[in-house]
C-alpha cells in the first residue's frame, strides 16, 4: 500500500486519524515505472546478446551460401522456399503430406508416451537399486552394460518383437531415456541423509509413507537431473527412430525432404527440432523448480 492509494481510500484515512497512535509502516517502494525499466533492462541483457550472435551467424551463412552453385541454400532462400510450411503448419492433404504441426505433434506424442513410461519405471527401478544393496549388486552391472547400447540398435529388435513401427518407436524412446533416470534416482536415494531416515523411524512412517514423504522429496533434485537428461535423449532418439520407421513424424519428414532434395525444408525442420528440444528441457527444469520448491538442495 503506497501513499497515493491511501488518499483515495477514505475509510483508511479516517481510521488513521481517529486511532492516531497506530502507525502503519509503509516501506518505501520505487515508483512503478522504475521497476518496469529495471525489468526491461534485465530482459534486454539476456535477450540481446544471443540475438546479435544469431544475426551475425545468419549474415555469415548468407554471404557464404549466396553464390550460385553452393550446396546449401542461404537463409533468404530457405525462408522463401519454406514460407508455406512456416505460415500454414496445419494443412492436411492425407497420408504423410501434412503440415509441420502434425509431424511435430506425432513425434511429441511418441516421446510423451515412451518418456512417461520411462519416468515411472525408471524412478521405481532407481528406488529399488538405491534402497536395496542386493538389488544394486544384481541390477547395476546389467544396467551399466545396457545403457551403452545406442538407441537405434534397439530398433530392429523392437520391430521384430512388436511387428509395428509405432510401438517400436515408443520402445526406443523408453529404453533410451530410462537409464539416466534409473541411475540418478538410485544415487539420490542412496544419498538420503541418515537424519531423515531417523526422523522417519521415530515417527514410524510405514514403507509407503516413507517412499512418498521422505524418499521422493529428498531425492527429487537427483531424480529431476535424470529426468532432464532423459527428455533430451528421447528427443534425440525420436528423430533417428522415425527416419527408419516412416509415417508421420518430424524424423521421417526430414528423411522425406532429403529424398526429394528439399534442403530448405530440412533446415526449417532442424530449427523446429532444436526449439522444441530446448522447450522440453526448460519444461522439465521448470517442473523441478516447482516440485522441489527450490529448497530441496539446501
Amino acid at each position: 500500500m503506497n501513499m497515493p492509494a491511501m488518499k483515495t481510500e477514505p475509510a483508511t484515512a479516517v481510521r488513521a486519524t481517529t486511532a492516531a497512535p497506530v502507525v502503519t509502516m509503509t516501506p518505501k517502494r520505487p515508483p512503478r515505472a522504475d521497476k518496469y525499466i529495471k525489468v526491461a533492462r534485465e530482459t534486454a541483457a539476456r535477450v540481446v546478446p544471443p540475438l546479435i550472435v544469431l544475426a551475425l551467424g545468419m549474415l555469415f551463412w548468407e554471404l557464404v551460401c549466396r553464390r550460385a552453385g553452393s550446396a546449401l541454400p542461404p537463409p533468404s532462400r530457405v525462408f522463401k522456399e519454406t514460407k508455406e510450411l512456416i505460415f500454414d503448419p496445419f494443412f492436411d492433404h492425407g497420408g504423410i503430406d501434412k503440415g509441420l504441426f502434425w509431424h511435430l505433434s506425432a513425434s511429441l506424442q511418441r516421446v510423451a508416451l515412451g518418456y512417461s513410461l520411462a519416468a515411472v519405471a525408471g524412478i521405481a527401478l532407481g528406488t529399488l537399486v538405491g534402497q536395496s544393496v542386493w538389488a544394486m549388486r544384481g541390477l547395476d552391472p546389467i544396467f551399466q552394460v545396457l545403457r551403452t547400447i545406442p538407441p537405434l540398435a534397439w530398433l530392429p529388435l523392437s520391430l521384430a518383437a512388436f511387428r509395428d513401427g509405432q510401438p517400436s518407436a515408443i520402445f526406443v524412446i523408453f529404453i533410451t531415456s530410462i537409464w539416466p533416470i534409473i541411475i540418478n534416482t538410485a544415487v539420490g536415494i542412496r544419498n538420503i541423509p541418515q537424519d531423515y531416515r531417523n526422523v522417519a523411524a521415530v515417527v514410524q512412517l510405514n514403507p509407503l509413507e516413507f517412499f512418498w514423504k521422505i524418499m521422493i522429496p529428498a531425492a527429487a533434485p537427483y531424480i529431476f537431473t535424470g529426468l532432464r537428461i532423459g527428455i533430451g535423449l528421447s528427443w534425440l532418439a525420436i528423430v533417428a527412430a522415425e527416419m527408419l520407421i516412416g509415417g508421420v513424424g518430424i524424423g521421417f519428414f526430414i528423411w522425406d525432404a532429403w529424398n526429394s532434395s528439399h534442403i530448405s525444408e530440412i533446415i526449417l525442420a532442424l530449427f523446429y527440432v532444436g526449439i522444441i528440444g530446448f522447450v522440453l528441457d526448460r519444461l522439465i527444469a521448470g517442473l523441478a523448480k516447482i516440485v522441489t520448491r527450490g529448497t530441496a538442495l539446501n
Partner: peptide, 18 residues
C-alpha cells in the same frame, strides 16, 4: 525399535527441508 513414545530432538535439528 524406534517410536514416538521416545521422541528425539536431534543435534542438527533434522527438519525436512521441503
Amino acid at each position: 525399535s524406534p517410536g514416538p513414545d521416545r521422541a528425539v530432538v536431534f543435534q542438527n535439528h533434522s527438519l525436512l527441508p521441503w
